[in-house]
């Protein structure tokens, strides 16, 4: 079963930093696909809801120093 969630991060300050977030998210258990776009701030995550959840993603994004918002 795959669930998908979308965030908006409006404060990415550098394209490499955005791809760091992508990498960090994809290393989480249960995450099947991650798409992070520096230009529009869109973050799309495909995941298995039994292995991962929204809060984890929000935490990971916040730890990298950014503010995840509801898409």
């Amino acid at each position: 079963m795959t669930d998908a969630v979308q965030f908006r991060v409006l404060d990415f300050d550098c394209p490499t930093c955005a791809s760091n977030v992508e990498r960090a998210l994809s290393r989480l258990d249960g995450v099947e696909s991650v798409d992070v776009h520096y230009t529009t701030g869109r973050v799309e995550i495909g995941f298995d809801p039994e292995a991962a959840d929204r809060e984890q993603f929000e935490d990971t994004i916040k730890k990298q120093g950014y503010t995840p918002q509801v898409a």
């Binding site: 550098c14 490499t16 930093c17 791809s19 760091n20 990498r23 990298q64 120093g65």
Partner: peptide, 14 residues
């Protein structure tokens, strides 16, 4: 802190 967390993902950023 950001540097710390990016290091965890094995990347080097600004």
């Amino acid at each position: 802190t950001k540097a710390y967390y990016t290091l965890q993902s094995r990347t080097v950023g600004i």
